[in-house]
């Protein structure tokens, strides 16, 4: 017990640094995947068969394979097969590769959620706007958008919570996120080895993050409950 107390400052310092990397990956993924998902969504709904077919196959492949494989392929393929290290070296290279893999993966999930949201708005909404002389952009921004956001918020919230935990997959390419940081004390690092408790403790970080997000997203859903 005394030992653990002595280890704490070192361990928490490491875990904090790891968690910072986790959060960076989390936010960068959301920042990239929200707009890219919209682009893919518009692609799958395109009138041009070639574009929509391409986007649909893309969605099918990404959603049909594990994120873990996508991470490994995206990270190793350029270097090992093309003999060209496009990601840069060290931790920043690993982060870039991980971010690309996560953004691609989540964008495809988001695109399907967006599509469901768009298609769930009854055509009568658009027609009512048209008959009242509104322009297409006015109809989108003033009428449909908020209804769409309300409908996609619950499934998007689910994905966001899942993403918090999924970031730990980046451990597979040795990204120094929080699991990596915790695991280091198992193998031996900064004079501490064979310690399992730091790894257990990483769970507390995840719980805090998902707990806060659940509260925040729940409040947002509540805010949109004024209409149906």
């Amino acid at each position: 017990m005394k030992l653990i107390f002595e280890q704490m400052p070192v361990v928490f310092n490491s875990l904090n640094i790891g968690f910072l990397q986790t959060m960076r990956l989390f936010f960068v993924t959301l920042l990239g995947a929200f707009p890219l998902g919209l682009l893919i969504c518009m692609g799958t709904m395109s009138r041009f068969k070639l574009i929509s077919a391409y986007c649909k196959i893309h969605v099918w492949i990404i959603r049909g394979t594990p994120l873990m494989i996508q991470l490994l392929i995206i990270y190793y393929f350029p270097g090992l097969v093309l003999h060209k290290n496009i990601w840069g070296s060290g931790e920043s290279g690993r982060f870039t590769a991980a971010a690309v893999a996560f953004i691609l993966n989540y964008a495809n999930y988001f695109s399907e959620i967006y599509r469901g949201g768009i298609q769930s708005i009854p055509v009568g909404q658009e027609e009512a706007g048209l008959v009242l002389g509104m322009t297409k952009p006015q109809i989108f921004f003033r009428i449909k958008l908020l209804q769409m956001i309300k409908r996609i918020l619950p499934p998007i919230s689910n994905e966001i919570i899942t993403l918090v935990k999924d970031t730990s997959l980046a451990r597979i390419i040795a990204l120094q996120e929080i699991i990596w940081a915790g695991q280091a004390f198992l193998k031996g690092s900064q004079g501490i080895s064979g310690a399992i408790w730091p790894l257990f403790f990483t769970a507390v970080y995840y719980l805090a993050a998902t707990g806060l997000l659940t509260l925040g997203l729940g409040a947002l859903e509540k805010k949109l409950e004024y209409f149906r």
Partner: peptide, 13 residues
């Protein structure tokens, strides 16, 4: 023209 729909189509928000 104005049009009143069978299903109202009011804007819920």
């Amino acid at each position: 023209f104005g049009l009143v729909f069978q299903s109202f189509n009011l804007f819920p928000q």
